[in-house]
Simulated assay, not measured.
Amino acid sequence: MGISQPALSKALKATETVPEPREGFSGASPYEICARYDAGFIDRDQLVDELTRWSYGAQGGTDGYDSLIVDQPGSWTHVELALCIKKP
């Protein structure tokens, strides 16, 4: 495979932190669902179904002093970020 044993071991340990897809969904986040659609793993009907059923986290807000906004995981921002996925 062209990968050393230490590199393989490190890569396998990194997979322990990858969240599993939610039950009934093809991804662990709206972004992942969109990425799976972009890659051709799910069709448009499934994409729309999953994104409309997703329980979105609250979108972040500023503290009134700066414009830094940090959204909760699973917020609608993940769908907006997925718009940046470029098709080849």
Rank of each mutant, 00 (worst) to 15 (best):
G2H: 05
I3V: 05
I3Y: 06
I3H: 12
I3T: 03
S4R: 14
Q5G: 06
Q5C: 08
P6L: 00
A7E: 12
L8R: 15
L8T: 00
S9D: 10
S9C: 10
K10G: 06
K10F: 03
K10C: 08
K10L: 14
A11H: 14
K13C: 05
K13Y: 07
A14W: 05
A14H: 06
A14F: 04
A14D: 03
T15C: 10
T15K: 15
P19M: 00
E20R: 12
P21M: 02
R22I: 06
E23M: 08
E23C: 02
G24C: 06
G24I: 01
F25D: 04
S26T: 01
S26P: 03
G27K: 05
A28R: 06
A28L: 02
P30D: 13
Y31S: 01
Y31F: 15
E32Y: 02
E32A: 08
C34A: 13
A35V: 07
R36H: 04
R36N: 09
R36T: 02
Y37Q: 03
D38E: 13
A39M: 13
G40P: 15
G40N: 07
F41I: 14
F41E: 14
F41T: 15
I42V: 10
R44L: 10
R44P: 01
D45Q: 13
Q46C: 07
L47A: 05
D49E: 15
E50W: 02
E50F: 01
L51H: 04
L51M: 08
L51N: 04
R53F: 13
R53I: 05
R53S: 08
R53A: 12
W54F: 09
S55A: 15
S55P: 11
Y56H: 10
G57N: 06
G57L: 01
G60N: 02
G60P: 02
G60E: 00
T62E: 09
Y65A: 07
D66S: 11
D66M: 07
S67N: 12
S67I: 11
S67L: 13
L68R: 12
L68Y: 09
I69A: 01
I69E: 00
I69L: 01
I69G: 00
I69H: 01
V70F: 00
D71Y: 07
D71H: 14
G74N: 03
S75M: 07
S75K: 13
W76Y: 14
W76R: 15
T77N: 12
H78V: 00
H78N: 13
V79M: 11
V79N: 09
L83T: 06
L83N: 07
C84E: 11
I85E: 03
P88I: 02
P88H: 05
